[in-house]
Write a protein that binds this DNA or RNA. Sequence first.
DNA 1: TAAATATATATCAATATGCTTATATAATCA
DNA 2: TGATTATATAAGCATATTGATATATATTTA
Lengths: 103, 103
Amino acid sequence: MEQINEIADNLKLLGDKTRLTMLALLKERALCVCDIVELLDISQPNASQHLRKLKSAGLVNETRKGQWIYYSLTIEDKPYVQAVLGYIPSYKQKIAQLKNDCD
Amino acid sequence: MEQINEIADNLKLLGDKTRLTMLALLKERALCVCDIVELLDISQPNASQHLRKLKSAGLVNETRKGQWIYYSLTIEDKPYVQAVLGYIPSYKQKIAQLKNDCD
DNA sequence: TAAATATATATCAATATGCTTATATAATCA
DNA sequence: TGATTATATAAGCATATTGATATATATTTA
């Protein structure tokens, strides 16, 4: 089974508080980098670096809208990631507090 | 939510091929260290070190039987770990090939 | 076109991780 | 009791990871 390597690699990405929270946020809706920076209270380069890893693994994708780049989950083909995210408390309320000048 | 830290920490442990395979093996049945060493083809200290991490996180526990120490899963209270392991192909056949002098 | 905003990338230091080798401990057996 | 087997621990090295700082790129706006 070669598949277990891919699963382990993806779980390693989930095994970081910052990235796991990012994915939990994106479960609610697509967010731009500045949203994520605000919500997680981390530096912008730090956010970009984590997002790049998630993108390389195919867990998220990006869509540019003007000067903003929105990230979304792409985990339809990764049921174990869906399952994990399903067990994380919702960030709906947190996201609702966004100042969200981005739109 | 403080819980997400614990989830991330546990997923980090799952995010290693050796440990993830160990857990998948233990899903089938309790195994002693020498079984795991044989099945994974790793060194004994390496196996012990990974098992210690899993034990520290409460993902496995140990039971001595004579000179052997058997490890078993203790993930009843961690549904997201159960979910992940549920998506990993079974190692039943592999385990059946054990020479298993241990008993 | 210049300034401002949003994001990415490069580099680096600190820390963490995984594995090996050597050794210690514990149980069994002759 | 001494040898053997099973397992744990310690120490060290090589590599990976994280986050910070500095800088580059891309888009929009004045």
